[in-house]
Design a protein around this nucleic acid. Structure first.
Ligand SMILES: [Mn+2]
Ligand SMILES: [Mn+2]
Length: 548
DNA sequence: ACGCAACTGCTAGAT
DNA sequence: GTGGGCACGG
DNA sequence: ATCTAGCAGTTGCCGTGCCCAC
């Protein structure tokens, strides 16, 4: 798949320009004058200056030393730097602390800076040298034999990146990896007016939530209660925007959990109350029980039962309520029915223990013998088959679903809109699977044609041709259709929990195997799929391993 | 895809 | 010397 | 003694070269 490609000289600047152009074209109406000027002023720079700026903003920084910058394609780097300094694209980072400056220095630089010729300090660890510089309290800057460059206006670039990619986790390397053939994206239709954001307000709130998300991580790590509560106060109203609400809920749940760890239960409850996503209600119910507020905890469980966010939340309530009922003195309801393991659906195998080999792999080798083929596929088998069988529907031209070249799925994938916007196509495909074999031919064609193309559900390195052929021969279409229906019913939650291995005996048929080593046990999502397999008549076994 | 999955190993509490 | 950690760049 | 639930901790193109610690 990866074919060596020579990228044109200065390719990174072309990519940067493509990003700027896209954003200026699509989003002119919601950019401020300064934000538009950022792109305009960049384009007015000389070629060398443009290249140097893009080189710098693509790197970690935030400070760079002039003597370490060497780029063959930048002919006159010093004058490019002067141009960037004059245009305020770069400064000298004068307001940076000495500690940040010192981080730029190598040990040899530090030794030279200390200039102590009487003792051999070259062998001291770096931290000791830093201590000596700090205690000496000298003015470091005048002694540096290089200039410091700090790229500026990164917040504009951040905005442009968000508008281009729709997220902040992708960056300019996407372009390179695609050009090199390391990443290969589907050629879906991007409509001319494609844009993720309609309102500037939503863009700003997205950026804000991003920052608060980062600071919430920091505050959790530092166990800083005041900071956590401050973040909660800064969270923006998110009204109808489901992605904003989701991000906000995630922050709230993270903060609530940390407040729990600090045993600040009143605040944890207040924070969870603002979150509309699991596990906020579950955590609240647990806190309330811990505080002996049993009726309140019970009422929360009832509200979960009345309107569960997903199966997991409902299962929690079902499992949690009997204990409360007993303590309160209510009639005790039926708990969660356990997944019963017996000789029909589980077995014990004794295997030699090898630290270096995962237990799933040991079991796979055990079954992959003269009488059967066995593969370690976990979620990838059924998700992959789903991604292939529904390829055209996943990448169907739906308004607003695709807005740049670098998506492995439509934007609405995990929202109810995914189903509703493609309802007839989905229903037809599921019906076709029950009535004819045409979908099978198409699936094989899709596999051959799309091999290596990014699709959220298809992990090409796992789903080999061999596994695909066997799966489609052995797994009845009705089984696949049942699995796909349950997947579609809640894509976000049901995409995990599939068994570790798939077994294809040479005599025919197939069986799913969930491996459990000593001390491991079925997880809730694995149990949900196992219950579904029972309903669908899909053959599975739990393989318990004992070390021999 | 703005952390997730999946897994492991530990502790506390229930039986 | 050399091995680990990690930033860089195609 | 044996069990279960809960919780915390771990890893994600890949080759090359720099820097540091040993
Ligand atoms: Mn597994
Ligand atoms: Mn397993």
């Amino acid at each position: 798949m990866p074919v060596p490609v020579d990228l044109p000289v200065g390719y990174y600047r072309d990519n940067f320009l493509a990003l700027l152009d896209f954003v200026r074209e699509q989003y002119a109406d919601i950019l401020t004058a300064e934000e538009t000027a950022y792109a305009d002023r960049f384009i007015d720079l000389t070629l060398d200056a443009q290249r140097l700026y893009v080189r710098l903003v693509s790197r970690r920084g935030p400070l760079f030393r002039s003597d370490k910058l060497h780029y063959a394609e930048i002919l006159d780097l010093p004058s490019a730097a002067r141009e960037l300094l004059a245009g305020n694209f770069v400064d000298h980072g004068k307001d940076e602390d000495d500690s940040v400056i010192l981080a730029l220095l190598t040990k040899a630089d530090l030794v030279a800076l200390i200039g102590d010729k009487t003792t051999a300090i070259g062998t001291l660890p770096r931290s000791d040298l830093l201590d000596r510089v700090n205690t000496a309290a000298v003015d470091i800057r005048p002694q540096l034999h290089f200039e410091i460059y700090r790229p500026l206006m990164m917040e504009y670039l951040r905005l442009y990146r968000l508008l281009f990619f729709g997220n902040l986790s992708q960056d300019l390397t996407q372009f390179v990896l695609t050009d090199l053939g390391l990443l290969n994206y589907e050629k879906y239709v991007i409509s001319a007016d494609a844009r993720l954001f309609k309102l500037r307000e939503v863009v700003d709130k997205t950026l804000l939530l991003h920052e608060l998300n980062e600071s919430s991580h920091a505050a959790v790590e530092q166990n800083d209660r005041e900071a956590l509560l401050e973040i909660v106060a800064l969270l923006p109203d998110s009204e109808q925007e489901t992605t904003l609400i989701r991000r906000k809920n995630r922050i709230l749940n993270r903060i609530g959990r940390q407040l729990e760890r600090q045993q600040d239960y009143p605040n944890a409850l207040l924070v969870y109350a603002q979150s509309s996503a699991p596990p906020a209600r579950e955590r609240s119910a647990r806190i309330l029980r811990k505080l002996a507020l049993l009726p309140q905890s019970y009422a929360l469980c009832q509200s979960i039962q009345g309107d569960p966010a997903d199966e997991a939340e409902l299962e929690f309530a079902t499992r949690f309520m009997p204990g409360l009922q007993k303590k309160i003195g209510l009639e005790v309801s039926e708990g969660l029915s356990p997944v019963l393991l017996d000789d029909n659906n589980s077995l014990l195998v004794s295997l030699p223990h090898d630290e270096a080999v995962r237990v799933e792999e040991s079991v796979r080798t055990y079954y992959d013998n003269h009488a059967s083929r066995c593969y370690y596929v976990e979620n990838h088998l059924f998700l992959g088959l789903f991604g292939l069988a529904f390829w055209d529907i996943i990448f169907m031209s739906v308004k607003g679903a695709f807005f740049n070249r670098y998506q492995s799925s439509p934007t609405d994938l995990y929202t109810p809109a995914f189903q509703s916007a493609r309802q007839t196509a989905i229903t037809d495909r599921l019906a076709e699977m029950k009535n004819s074999d045409r979908w099978l031919d198409v699936l094989h064609e899709t596999y051959a044609e799309k091999l290596g193309v990014a699709n959220r559900f298809v992990h090409w390195q796992v789903l080999s041709e061999e596994i695909l052929q066997l799966s489609l021969q052995r797994i009845p279409a009705s089984h696949l259709a049942h699995v796909f229906e349950r997947l579609l019913w809640d894509l976000r939650n049901n995409r995990s929990g599939f068994p570790d291995l798939v077994l294809f005996p040479d005599c025919g048929s197939y069986q799913l195997l969930e491996v459990k080593g000593p001390g491991d046990r079925l997880q809730d999502n694995q149990k949900r799929w196992i219950r579904a397999f029972e309903r669908f008549g899909i053959p599975y076994r739990v393989v318990n391993v004992a070390w021999s």
